[in-house]
Each structure stands twice: as structure tokens, then as C-alpha cells.
Amino acid sequence: MSTAQPAPLSFRDAGEADVAELVALVESAYRGETSRGGWTTEADYLEGQRTDEDGVRQIVDAPEGTLLVVERADEMVACCHLEHRGDHAYFGMFAVRPGLQGGGLGKEILAEAERRARETWGVREMRMTVVNVREELIAYYVRRGYRRTGELSPFPYGDERFGVPLRDDLAFELLVKPL
């Protein structure tokens, strides 16, 4: 019986040619029925879009950060956004294909993102915001060294670019990790 190892992950900065595929990846991981194939779905809290081509293009074009494309055997399997913000880096738009979630990819990608932020920008802290009702996702980050701050920022109710909330108690909680 062969236990072949999967191909290694490769990381590269996203470009204009990646925008449509990145939108599809992010949408598949967070919204709609396909997102229910993984554990990061927001379909029980939010409907509508998670992002769009303009939003992804703005991140791709921003000089202070990068949208990392993660590939395995030339197939896009994940992405994440890293942005340099003075003394820290911001981590966001993290998406792994739903059928590949739960197998350790996320942990490997997060570690690489933290390494890049530390080595590229010399920052000592990574920050992210997570929808406050996503207890399972928050617990995932806590297991990887992130600390809940209790600091909340409002969810952009009424701005459908970020989705249509299905409940009225959503906010973003700031999580931080020393690097």
C-alpha cells in the first residue's frame, strides 16, 4: 500500500489574471451551499457575496500588502491577504477550498503567512478580525497562538458588498498573536 505524500504547496503573489478565480475560491469557502462542504462556512450567519472582483483587485493592487495565492500541483487551493500596518501585519481573506479543509493545509498556510510577515516587514505581531459568533473558527486561531482581545468593531450592516446578515448581533473581534 502506497502512502504518497501530496505535492508541496507553493506560494506566490496574486496578479490581475487571478482575480476571478480568487473571488470564486473565497465565495466557495464562506458562502452558499458549496461552503457547507468545509467548516469555515458563514452561510448560517450571512447570505450574499463575501467579496467581489473590485474588492479583490484593490487588495491585489495595494502597495502595502499582498494577496498570496497558494497552489498545489498548479491548482489554486487557498489564498490569504497580508497587509503591513506599521508595527504589525493584518491577516485576512483566508480561504481554503472546502473539500480540502480539515487536513492541515490551513495550519501550514498560516505559519507561512506569519513567517513572511515577520521576515518581510520585521513586524512582531499579526492581527486579524473574525466575526464574533464564529466560535469554532476563533478557537482554531486560539489553538495557533492568537489571543482574543474582546475588542469589537461593528459589522457593516447595510453594505451588501460584505453580505446580507441573517442575525443582528454580528461584530468583528480582534485577535492578535506575537510573532
Rank of each mutant, 00 (worst) to 15 (best):
E33W: 01
E33T: 10
S35C: 00
S35D: 10
G37F: 02
G38R: 02
G38C: 01
W39A: 06
T40N: 04
T41D: 04
T41I: 08
A43Q: 08
A43Y: 01
D44M: 05
D44N: 09
Y45P: 00
Y45T: 11
L46V: 15
L46S: 08
L46C: 11
L46N: 08
L46G: 08
E47Q: 14
G48F: 07
G48Q: 03
Q49R: 14
Q49Y: 02
Q49E: 10
T51H: 06
D52F: 05
D52H: 12
D54A: 15
G55E: 11
V56A: 06
R57D: 00
Q58C: 07
Q58W: 00
Q58N: 12
I59H: 04
I59N: 04
D61V: 08
D61M: 09
D61N: 14
D61C: 05
D61A: 15
A62R: 12
P63D: 15
P63K: 15
E64A: 14
E64R: 15
T66H: 10
T66I: 11
L67D: 07
L67R: 03
L67H: 04
V70S: 03
V70W: 03
E71P: 02
R72A: 07
A73F: 04
D74E: 10
D74Q: 11
E75A: 12
E75K: 08
M76D: 03
M76C: 10
V77T: 08
V77P: 00
A78C: 01
C79R: 05
C80F: 10
H81I: 08
H81F: 03
L82M: 10
E83I: 12
E83S: 14
H84R: 11
R85S: 08
G86D: 10
G86A: 10
D87M: 08
H88Y: 13
H88P: 07
H88F: 13
A89E: 03
A89G: 13
Y90N: 10
Y90A: 14
F91T: 08
F91Q: 04
F91S: 03
F91R: 05
G92S: 06
G92A: 06
M93H: 06
F94Q: 01
R97L: 13
R97P: 01
P98T: 02
P98E: 00
G99R: 13
G99D: 12
G99T: 14
Q101V: 10
G104P: 07
L105D: 05
K107L: 09
L110Q: 07
R115N: 07
R115E: 11
R116T: 01
A117W: 03
A117Y: 03
E119I: 13
E119T: 14
W121F: 06
W121S: 03
G122Y: 06
V123K: 07
E125W: 04
R127Q: 12
T129Y: 01
T129D: 06
T129L: 04
T129R: 06
V130A: 02
V130N: 02
V131H: 02
V131M: 11
V131L: 14
V133N: 09
V133E: 13
R134I: 12
E135T: 15
E135K: 12
L137F: 06
Y140W: 14
V142N: 07
V142K: 05
V142L: 07
Y146V: 12
R147A: 13
R147Y: 02
T149Q: 00
E151Y: 05
